[in-house]
């Protein structure tokens, strides 16, 4: 497991290079913004017909992280499905796959703006999850602390002597951590975007995902 170790409100956490967050003390694995069923939703709405493999790819990576961490609890931090229709329309094989992943562990769907209601899959459905000292919710609240959220799909760019490397990234400071999007068909919002300024303190860091998890001062 390649990870960057950090502490949020006293809780030691590991930002995995895969984009998942691992809380060893709780045996909890958190992933955000899976956007399962995105290609189905786009096709349904009369858009283009994208390769329908993103759910398979996302679940493959999630299964690998579960195998690695033996997580007892899984938190999907909102926007797990591209919309509720996409959740319903998941092919049977992929629904069964999710069921298999859920077996023997507690599974929490935190609701997001794309999937604001319960889904017909196992696990419990919550608006947010409080697990002292941390709170897991989809969209960060500027006044809160000890908060883990998703929604913004942060990505960070670094300039390496004439070349720019851009990767999905965790961003965190002493108050909060914002997760990168875990889903295969997800874009990203640059950490320099205005949305991050009111949320993140001056000493915030970004942890780039990829082959290795690498921390840098959050580019702004």
């Amino acid at each position: 497991m390649n990870a960057y170790d950090l502490t949020l409100a006293g809780a030691p956490l590991k930002a995995l290079s895969t984009g998942a967050l691992w809380w060893p003390d709780q045996g909890l694995l958190c992933v955000s913004d899976l956007h399962l069923g995105k290609s189905e939703r786009i096709a349904r709405r009369g858009g283009t017909i994208l390769p329908p493999y993103e759910t398979r790819d996302t679940l493959t990576r999630l299964a690998a992280d579960l195998a690695l961490t033996h997580a007892r609890t899984v938190v999907c931090l909102g926007d797990s499905f591209d919309d509720l229709g996409a959740a319903q329309a998941l092919p049977e094989a992929e629904k069964l796959w999710i069921n298999r992943l859920q077996a023997g562990r507690s599974w929490i769907w935190v609701e997001g703006n794309h999937d604001p209601g319960p889904v017909e899959l196992g696990g419990s459905h919550l608006a947010e999850l409080a697990l002292a000292p941390l709170t897991f919710r989809h969209i960060a609240q500027p006044t809160s602390s000890a908060e883990v959220s998703g929604h913004y799909h942060p990505k960070a760019s670094l300039s390496l002597g004439g070349r720019t490397v851009t990767r999905p990234a965790f961003v965190y400071d002493s108050d909060r951590l914002i997760m990168p999007a875990y889903g295969t068909y997800t874009g990203g919002l640059d950490t320099r975007a205005a949305a991050f300024a009111p949320l993140m303190r001056a000493d915030a860091r970004a942890v780039l995902t990829g082959k290795t998890a690498i921390a840098v001062p959050m580019p702004r």
């Binding site: 950090l6 502490t7 949020l8 409100a9 006293g10 030691p12 670094l158 390496l160 002597g161 490397v165 965190y172 400071d173 002493s174 000493d203 860091r205 780039l208 290795t212 690498i214 921390a215 840098v216 001062p217």
Partner: peptide, 23 residues
């Protein structure tokens, strides 16, 4: 290179010396 640059930036910003939280 990425590892080198990240180490340099952390050092330069002083973030490598300070701990953001009590850990």
């Amino acid at each position: 290179l990425l590892a080198q640059e990240a180490a340099r930036l952390m050092e330069q910003s002083g973030l490598a010396q300070i701990t953001p939280a009590a850990s």
